[in-house]
Nucleic acid binder design. Structure first.
Lengths: 220, 220
DNA sequence: CCAATATTAGAGCACGCGCTCTACTATTGA
DNA sequence: TCAATAGTAGAGCGCGTGCTCTAATATTGG
């Protein structure tokens, strides 16, 4: 017998394809992206592409499925943190990092479109979401029990809204991502009853800032 | 000479096509929707379709452009309202109605994907957004000046966040739209410093509700 | 070195796409 | 009634699609 596989090299090449595909999907969505484009971007032929993935849809799934273990590990770590504040910062930091990724908005839109129709893919997304929201809820419950904290909503609702805000930030203007991220941290602190009066007016755009609001682009 | 046009009949038929197209676009996005599907749904032939619209993209634009005058009128009415609370309710009511529309999430996703690439379409969306955000900001400024109100953020930031929350609600689970809408009203009241203690814990999911959070599906 | 297998490129296939074009019908004013 | 034009249907065109298949090349173990 001859020729065994180097799994690392295989994984590297696979990842290269997934990265190229992610960029294309973020721009054109699943149906709008042609396999030829992915090939060109990855610098390979179509034969190679279909050697690594059976269908275009499989590549799309891989783009998101690759995140699952990373998210799970981070959530476990955050829940296990001795201090709920630390745990919250971990999760929020992760969500903010996602918002800062320039590919995120396009991918989120493409994912939504697809999640509504492809049941298996929908379950994949729901799984990622549920993992994060469950972790957030657990942390928020411990936070609410802390003395002196006055969270505005019950933990489940707060977790849902934080997630919602991140979704919203995803759709936000690409130019303002850093400010959006900063504001996201701020509003989370506020939702959670952390940081006391630090918020009240000022900052986050400033009382004296121009009246024209530059914010997010899309929304039907 | 002979045969003049009935503009009303023309508009009705055009609207019928736009409605069918909107449903398809919400499901498959712009590039994923074929003109043949639109024709089938609208019960017409391709000849008819291209008699009313020059290109598929033009139909897509029309789906959103048709909203512009409606939004402008409502915003003007809300700003002109004698009482800023009434004005706010008008705008929020309009946004909530949008969230309740079952086509909204898909269309929002499709719009985002397209707004990022088609500059003209991007400007169209930005225009709608700016109209609404400017109206909201104006109303919120009057609201903040009211005695006894303690808004959490400056008006511009609040307007931006309300818009963001609506975007987030768009992406939310289709089954929970009514609850999402109710919570949206609640969090707006809170942001605006309206309704006092009515919010603090309880409601909105309940302290005794199950720990598994059902919330939104998508988000990368 | 050689046999065996992993990996690659790209020509080519059947098909569905956006859109055009022609032929036909419905509806109007004179 | 009849010419003129709005409206409609659908066959068909050129092209790009997702994917397959063949043939060639790298890379390994023995």
């Amino acid at each position: 017998m001859a020729r065994t596989v180097d799994p690392e090299a295989h994984a590297r090449r696979r990842a290269r394809i997934v990265a190229a595909a992610a960029a294309e999907f973020a721009e054109h969505g699943l149906e709008g992206t042609s396999t030829a484009r992915i090939c060109r971007r990855a610098g390979i032929g179509s034969g190679t592409l279909f050697h690594y993935f059976a269908t275009k849809r499989a590549i799309f799934h891989a783009v998101f499925a690759d995140d699952v273990p990373r998210v799970a590990a981070l959530c476990a770590q955050a829940v296990a943190a001795p201090d709920p504040d630390t745990g919250l910062d971990l999760v929020v930091g992760h969500l903010v990092a996602e918002v800062t990724d320039p590919l995120a908005p396009g991918l989120a839109a493409a994912a939504y479109l697809e999640g509504g129709r492809d049941a298996e893919f929908g379950r994949l997304l729901a799984g990622i979401d549920d993992t994060r929201r469950a972790a957030l809820t657990a942390i928020l419950e411990r936070l609410a029990a802390l003395p002196g904290r006055r969270p505005a909503f019950p933990p489940v609702a707060t977790a849902r809204w934080i997630h919602g805000l991140v979704d919203a930030a995803h759709l936000g203007d690409a130019e303002d991502r850093d400010r959006t991220a900063a504001e996201l941290r701020q509003i989370v602190d506020w939702l959670v009853g952390r940081g006391g009066t630090r918020v009240r007016a000022g900052r986050a755009g400033g009382a004296g800032s121009p009246a024209t609001a530059p914010g997010s682009r899309p929304a039907r």
